[in-house]
């Protein structure tokens, strides 16, 4: 079974996202910030990461940069999922190694479409 790590500081968003990725057949793990996500990735590298941008402790873009520098850190498909909805943020994310980008608000169809674009389903 493929695994997906949902990284968001909002418990509500994590719950909604978990339901969507589990319905798509992923086993789901959660993290509340970038540092917790990095710790989780060092234990087990997931296949996919759904990543918020603005979080306490370590934000999404710093997490992504750190992740890509890790051993095996190129493996996960990283899909940003954020309210940062402008071209400057999108290009910054792509340069840092993001594979896809979801602009909030999102729904199941958008996540599924973006996971398909990224070759996950």
């Amino acid at each position: 079974m493929k695994t997906c790590l949902v990284v968001d500081d909002s418990r509500v968003i994590r719950k909604v996202a978990r339901k969507i990725v589990e319905d798509m057949g992923f086993a789901c793990e959660e993290a509340g910030d970038g540092q917790a996500a990095l710790t989780q990735c060092r234990k087990t590298m997931p296949d996919a990461i759904l990543l918020d941008w603005n979080m306490p402790v370590m934000n999404g873009i710093d997490f992504l940069t750190a992740l890509r520098a890790e051993e095996n850190g190129k493996k996960p498909v990283v899909v940003f999922c954020t309210t940062e909805n402008d071209m400057a943020h999108i290009t910054q994310a792509l340069r840092a190694g993001a594979d896809e980008y979801v602009m909030k608000p999102f729904d199941g169809e958008i996540i599924e479409s973006k996971f398909a674009e990224a070759g996950l389903v």
Partner: peptide, 20 residues
Amino acid sequence: TQFEVQRGLSIQRLVKHFDQ
């Protein structure tokens, strides 16, 4: 709309072919 450009369209194509 933001909703319309997120279904079926990759982020690379959005960046390449659209202006905000």
